[in-house]
Design a protein around this nucleic acid. Structure first.
Ligand SMILES: O=c1ccn([C@H]2C[C@H](O)[C@@H](COP(=O)(O)OP(=O)(O)OP(=O)(O)O)O2)c(=O)[nH]1
Ligand SMILES: [Mg+2]
Length: 401
DNA sequence: GCACAGAGAAC
DNA sequence: GTTCTC
DNA sequence: GTGC
């Protein structure tokens, strides 16, 4: 029988990441030579290699999405197209075809930024990230309003079930497919017959609540609870909601809170205390990722519920970071994920590296592998992280790629 | 044919 | 080491 | 999926 699931290439080291990101433009792939040419964006004006200080490689930055504001035309003139392509992304993600999903996501970003409606194949093909295959599909939608490939997915029981299962927190494509192969088709099957990890049990039990997004006002209430608790445990603590909330989104999938302390050391031991206080209050209802014996705990992922009637369970993520890493941690935790991946990809092209801990220069890689870590570039602020890369500073609202 | 970010935690 | 998530 |  037909199998919609994309198997992993057998051999070693499959790199990876996950499906989505990209979008808008630039960020072409890679390989040796510095990009130089490439057709590219209308905005590309040559003469824009990074003003980056000295030794790093010169890389034109105008085409990288992290160097551009995410602000798009108020109304998406190609909504009828992007809606269908978004569906395709979900289908491909659930079937473990992450790089194909990645490609679609990139094209969607370009379509969103496009101020006019795409009507012809040539218009579509001219967009960064749209090749012949996607131009065919975009043209098909523009012409007929339909996408046969999407209809095909919708009539596949396997794909529909994989989507249902990958929406369980803690279950990805591999697990979802294993369940499908075992004959499971519904959440009830999972509850009664499947082997579930702790995370997946919580995910099934709170399935609906955890798929829901909350209004930002509710996220602000959750931020306040954590902030007050942290302050009571360690006066002077810095606590902010990042993620989509900090980017100003109207609704948030969860609340991402960063904790640190300006004295440089009082963040130590904070984790255990804050989590314990929140549990004593009855605020946290379930843990998803939380290190038992703390001290070096980096993150807490769990579920909370505000007091009172008619409240849903909400996902809450907390990270605690040393003050010296605050700027890089803020950039990371504010996102978006696409923005981060773009920024990190750009770093890599420049012979640098960026993670939630630090920005490094003089990094030596052999292929994908890092041979020498390089040295830390001091970055006291978010702005310093971006300008060190030659990327214009963007406020959180403009990093919503 | 290669690269598409980089890391923490659960199992 | 793989899977999943941020 | 795209781009090189
Ligand atoms: O693959 C990922 C996922 C997340 N992040 C960072 C950016 C993101 O903004 C932040 C918080 O993650 P989350 O999944 O909560 O994303 P969000 O941007 O807050 O969106 P949502 O409203 O769905 O929570 O962590 C990454 O760097 N890579
Ligand atoms: Mg979030």
């Amino acid at each position: 029988m037909w199998n919609a699931f994309k198997s992993k290439p057998k051999a070693e080291e499959s790199e990876d990441g996950d499906s989505d990101y990209a979008a808008s433009d630039g960020e072409v792939s890679d390989s040796s030579a510095s990009h130089a040419a490439s057709a590219e964006l209308p905005t590309t004006s040559s003469a824009d290699t990074t003003p980056n200080t000295s030794p790093e490689k010169k890389v034109p930055i105008s085409k990288w999405i992290c160097a551009q504001s995410s602000k798009a035309p108020k109304s998406n003139a190609n909504e009828h197209i992007t809606a269908k392509l978004e569906e395709m992304v979900k289908n491909y993600e659930s079937t473990n075809d992450k790089w194909r999903a990645f490609g679609y996501q990139k094209a969607i970003g370009a379509l969103r930024k496009c101020p006019h409606e795409i009507r012809s194949w040539e218009e579509a093909r001219a967009l960064q990230g749209v090749g012949a295959k996607l131009a065919d599909k975009i043209w098909e939608i523009a012409q007929s309003g339909e996408l046969r490939k999407l209809t095909e997915f919708q009539s596949s029981e396997q794909v529909q079930v994989l989507k249902l299962f990958t929406d369980v927190w803690g279950a990805g494509p591999t697990t979802a497919n294993a369940w499908f192969q075992q004959g499971f088709r519904t959440l009830e099957d999972l509850k009664t017959k499947a082997n579930l990890t702790h995370q997946q049990k919580v995910g099934v039990r709170l399935y609906e609540d955890l798929l829901d997004r909350m209004p930002r006002e509710e996220a602000a209430e959750i931020e306040a609870v954590v902030k007050e608790t942290a302050e009571s445990v360690q006066p002077g603590v810095i606590a902010y909601a990042c993620g989509s909330y900090r980017r100003g989104k109207k609704d948030c999938g969860d609340v991402d809170i960063i904790l640190t302390h300006p004295d440089g050391h009082s963040h130590k031991g904070l984790f255990g205390k804050v989590i314990q206080h929140l549990k004593d209050k009855g605020f946290l209802t379930d843990d998803l990722v939380s290190v038992e014996d703390n001290e070096n705990q980096k993150k807490y992922l769990g579920v909370c519920k505000l007091p009172g009637p008619n409240r849903k369970h909400r996902r809450l993520d907390i990270i605690v970071v040393p003050y010296e890493e605050y700027a890089c941690a803020l950039v990371y935790f504010t996102g978006s994920a696409h923005f981060n991946r773009s920024l990190r990809h750009l770093c890599k092209k420049m012979g640098m590296s960026l993670n939630e801990h630090a920005l490094r220069k003089g990094v030596v890689r052999k292929g994908q592998e890092k041979i020498f870590e390089g040295t830390i570039v001091p970055t006291p602020t978010e702005e310093s992280v971006m300008t060190a890369l030659g990327v214009p500073f963007r406020p959180p609202e403009e990093r919503d790629h």
